[in-house]
């Protein structure tokens, strides 16, 4: 659901930049977010396509840099990458873990424009 609002915000930011920098067309929008930030990239692209019609953002492709989810385990003192956070250390099975990265919010990094 939030993809709708995120898409709208991305388009607003692009429109501001288009005005200031004088570009007419965006080819690629480079984005980043954490693996566990619950953002559905296909849904976001779809919402973006629908709302970008008639703006400088029309036709742009969204490219995601997915930042890894990391845990720190206090039992084996390791820092490990995880696919999902289960509260269990994948190395020693210990429960004394803390999620240290993975929920970073969506950012626009760069635009590829003409």
């Amino acid at each position: 659901m939030h993809e709708l609002y995120l898409a709208e915000s991305i388009i607003n930011i692009i429109s501001n930049y288009a005005e200031h920098n004088g570009f007419k067309k965006v080819n690629i929008v480079f984005l980043s977010c954490g693996r566990l930030s619950c953002i559905e990239s296909k849904t976001l692209q779809f919402a973006f396509d629908v709302q970008a019609k008639g703006t400088a953002a029309e036709g742009a492709v969204l490219e995601f840099q997915i930042l890894p989810a990391m845990i720190h385990c206090f039992s084996c003192e390791k820092d490990l990458e995880v696919e999902i956070h289960t509260g269990v250390c994948p190395s020693c099975g210990g429960h004394e873990v803390v999620l240290t990265a993975g929920t970073e919010e969506l950012k626009i990094l760069e635009l590829d424009v003409d």
């Binding site: 930049y17 570009f23 919010e105 626009i108 590829d112 424009v113 003409d114």
Partner: peptide
């Protein structure tokens, strides 16, 4: 051309 943004959505 590349335009740097680096901004929270």
């Amino acid at each position: 051309m590349k335009v740097k943004v680096v901004k929270k959505v």
